[in-house]
Each structure stands twice: as C-alpha cells, then as structure tokens.
C-alpha cells in the first residue's frame, strides 16, 4: 500500500496531478449543480414546478 502511494518516488507529482484534476472536475460539477439550483429557484418563482 505504502508503495502504491509512493509512486516510485514521484508521489508529489503524480498525486498533485490527480488531485488537481479531481479539483477541476469537482468545480465543474459544483457549477452544474448551482445552475440546477438556480433553475429550480426560477421555476418556484414562476409559480409552478412544472417545466
């Protein structure tokens, strides 16, 4: 297990890349769900839940 995390001595580089990518993707997913919340808000304001 420790060997897996060590990445043959390149742990910093490999894991920071995967961490960054995960962060970027998480940011995009967060943006999408914020957009969804906004859509729901407008639907509530428009008086009905039906699109």
């Amino acid at each position: 297990m420790a060997e897996f995390f060590a990445m043959g001595g390149h742990a910093v580089w490999v894991w920071s890349c995967y961490g960054l990518s995960a962060g970027g993707i998480a940011f995009l997913i967060w943006l999408s769900f914020r957009q969804r919340a906004r859509a729901r808000e407008w639907q509530k304001l428009s008086g009905d839940g039906q699109p």
């Binding site: 999408s32 957009q35 969804r36 906004r38 859509a39």
Partner: peptide
C-alpha cells in the same frame, strides 16, 4: 462521458431557468 453529461445537464437547466424566468416576468 463526464463532459457530455455536464453539458447536457447545464443546457437543460439553463433552458428551464430561462423559460421559467420569462414566465415569472410575464406573471
């Protein structure tokens, strides 16, 4: 696949929001 899912979801929600906004304003 992830990008496709996000794009479809965002476009759908933006479209829903846009039409709901127009309805709300009209009301």
């Amino acid at each position: 696949a992830l990008m496709t899912a996000l794009v479809l979801m965002n476009v759908r929600n933006m479209s829903l929001a846009k039409r709901a906004e127009a309805r709300a304003r009209r009301r």
